[in-house]
């Protein structure tokens, strides 16, 4: 639990961070340090240099945009939670941020750090998939944006390329309703499963739905059969949530579900169904 020695550099601007990143061998970016530092301390990473981007003002803050909401990469969870816009325009994401860790973690950890680290049991992959977010990155060749559906590749692996920095996450405004619920691990507090839902609602009818899960799989993944079922249902139509939940594992093979010392993949599948139901139920409640 004591990290090996590393060098520490502080970047004052994105440009400087990019320069440092390209000039330094074996470097990792540090923002809030609530994913990277525990990883280093438990011996799973041993970077030679940490480049601290946590102090770059340009990267921090939640802004209302024409289409929705922008969350700067180094915005702490606690600051993101203060944003009314986020709660309004991306309810599932706001729910999820409120579920991350505890007060201390939320005061230090950052949204961009979370997305870059891509822990499969973190609370953000599911709701960001549901929210149809876009991850903005910048590298030596300039900026590019990555649709969330193309972003999570595998456990701790994303579409961010060598030398790129996450600058922010853009979320289109939710015209309807959304929610995120999770089964919290009694030990770590991470999601055993977590499900984010976004419903586009018009005249009491669900026009379309996006549903994403974390904790259940090696990486954040959408639950297609649930989405397909929800489209066209009415928000007060009897057993909608229960029927949606039943479909959460419809196209899932048991081997795809995570198995660990606490939870078998079989039971994780059951929890995924139950929490998909609860997430839909909460989103429907909010739509009504």
């Amino acid at each position: 639990m004591y990290p090996p020695a590393f060098d520490y550099l502080r970047a004052e601007s994105v440009e400087e961070a990019l320069d440092l990143l390209s000039d330094t061998e074996d470097a990792e970016l540090l923002a809030g340090g609530h994913s990277l530092l525990p990883t280093i301390k438990s011996g799973l990473a041993d970077p030679g240099t940490l480049i601290d981007v946590g102090g770059i003002d340009d990267l921090s803050g939640v802004e209302t945009t024409e289409e929705g909401v922008w969350i700067g990469a180094t915005t702490t969870y606690a600051d993101a939670l203060k944003s009314e816009t986020l709660a309004e325009r991306a309810p599932a994401v706001a729910d999820a941020i409120g579920e991350i860790g505890d007060v201390q973690v939320r005061n230090r950890g950052t949204v961009g750090g979370n997305v870059a680290h891509a822990d499969p049991a973190s609370d953000l992959p599911g709701p960001l998939l549901a929210a149809d977010a876009t991850v903005h990155v910048r590298g030596a060749d300039g900026e590019r944006s990555i649709p969330i559906d193309d972003y999570f590749l595998a456990m701790y692996a994303t579409a961010i390329e060598e030398g790129e920095i996450v600058t922010g996450i853009e979320i289109p405004a939710c015209e309807g309703s959304g929610a995120y619920v999770k089964k919290t691990s009694p030990s770590s507090g991470y999601a055993v499963v977590g499900v984010g839902v976004r419903l586009a609602v018009s005249g009491g009818e669900i026009e379309s739905a996006r549903v994403g899960a974390n904790g259940a799989f090696g990486y954040g993944r959408r639950l297609g059969p649930v989405e397909e079922f929800l489209a066209g249902e009415t928000i007060d139509g009897g057993d909608v949530a229960a029927e949606a939940g039943e479909r959460a594992t419809a196209d899932v093979e048991e081997w795809e579900l995570i198995e660990d010392i606490d939870t078998s993949s079989e039971f994780r599948g059951r929890l995924l169904e139950a929490y998909a139901e609860r997430a839909v139920d909460r989103a429907l409640d909010r739509a009504g």
Binding site: P186, S187, I261
Partner: peptide, 24 residues
């Protein structure tokens, strides 16, 4: 409800941190 110290079949402690051992 929560706590159990568990070893795997090779006698490695599987619950060797507060990440894995559920203190309430």
């Amino acid at each position: 409800v929560y706590e159990e110290g568990r070893y795997d079949e090779n006698a490695n402690l599987a619950t060797g941190s507060l990440q894995d051992y559920a203190m309430p």
